[in-house]
């Protein structure tokens, strides 16, 4: 029992309380505060790492990661449309969710590595930002074609100035400009409290996940299978990409986790505005009700095993 991280218990606790229809809930301002702290902390950590190395050496890695961000939604779109029998808008929206990433899942993966003292490249935080955006653009184009009706300036505003990307980028820049010694004075709030904050965040995520489970029955088996098989396949692609980039075992496992994760903040907001005819319940049920719990409970240890086995075979 000791191998289960306490933060995972917080998630299960939230799930249980939600399923039991308990009155429990985090006040929404607290939830906003907690997710803001997580985003800033992740950004700061990545930024400090960027200060340690010349930015230009990362450009090829960044280009490949962005390329994969465009590719992933294209892989699942035909499956959703032809096997899942969803209409074009729903297929495009779900594909965008799965092509993008979940910051919460990333934070749990980071905590997993820290607990086990596994080294990983801290600039993974930069990849979170890079992977968040391309899938949204692909999703909109898949749903609407390259039509003139799409208000790209509104989309751009929504995506780039949305809470998730702005906090991450803000943290990255502040960490980058301040460097490791500069950030020391604020580290008690951002770094020392990271796991406690993550625990509260996961408690609320458990409650939110429980609220999605009701819609699962309505949308059936395909979404459940899709929500588990997609992260498994994407994690293999992520592992291969991590190896191609020459990342460490920890870095490869985190990249695999990022590929496997599905968005539930940035993409739903962007899809709501840009592809309003897509049913938001479908994509959120899959990404939050199935993929998020699958990844944090089983996925991350599995992707870690996958990354270390792959590295061992190659070495």
């Amino acid at each position: 029992m000791n191998s289960i991280d306490p933060i995972i218990w917080f998630f299960l606790f939230g799930l249980f309380a939600g399923a039991m229809k308990s009155e429990l809930r985090l006040p929404s301002q607290i939830y906003d505060f907690v997710s803001m702290l997580l985003l800033l902390t992740i950004g700061l950590k990545g930024g400090i790492e960027l200060a340690n190395q010349p930015f230009a050496t990362l450009l090829p890695q960044m280009a490949l990661v962005v390329g994969m961000g465009f590719l992933l939604p294209l892989l699942v779109f035909p499956i959703l449309k032809h096997v899942g029998k969803f209409n074009k808008a729903d297929s495009a929206s779900i594909a965008a969710h799965y092509g993008s990433v979940s910051v919460g899942t990333f934070a749990v993966a980071v905590a997993y590595m820290n607990t086990r003292n596994i080294e990983f490249e801290e600039h993974m935080a930069l990849f979170v930002v890079l992977l968040e955006i391309p899938a949204i653009l692909v999703g909109i184009v898949l749903a609407k074609g390259l039509s003139k009706d799409t208000q790209w300036s509104t989309v751009g505003h929504e995506v780039l100035l949305g809470k998730g990307v702005m906090f991450l980028l803000g943290g990255l820049f502040i960490g980058w400009l301040s460097g490791p010694s500069g950030v020391e004075s604020i580290s008690p709030l951002f770094f020392d409290l990271f796991k406690g904050i993550l625990a509260l965040f996961l408690l609320e995520m458990g409650l939110i996940t429980a609220s999605q489970l009701g819609s699962l029955k309505r949308y059936g088996l395909f979404l459940v299978i899709f929500g588990i098989v997609t992260p498994l396949i994407f994690s293999v692609i992520g592992t291969a990409t991590g190896l191609a980039l020459g990342l460490s075992i920890g870095g490869t496992a985190i990249l695999a986790t990022l590929f496997a994760s599905a968005s539930y903040i940035a993409v739903p907001a962007a899809m709501r505005i840009s592809v309003p005819e897509a049913n938001p319940t479908l994509s959120l049920t899959a990404s939050l009700g199935i993929t998020f719990p699958f990844n944090i409970l089983l996925g991350i240890p599995l992707y870690h095993w996958l990354a270390s086995s792959a590295q061992n075979i190659l070495v």
Partner: peptide
Amino acid sequence: RGLRSGSWEANA
């Protein structure tokens, strides 16, 4: 269109 509990962004 269902329960909008306002507990987080997507159902506020």
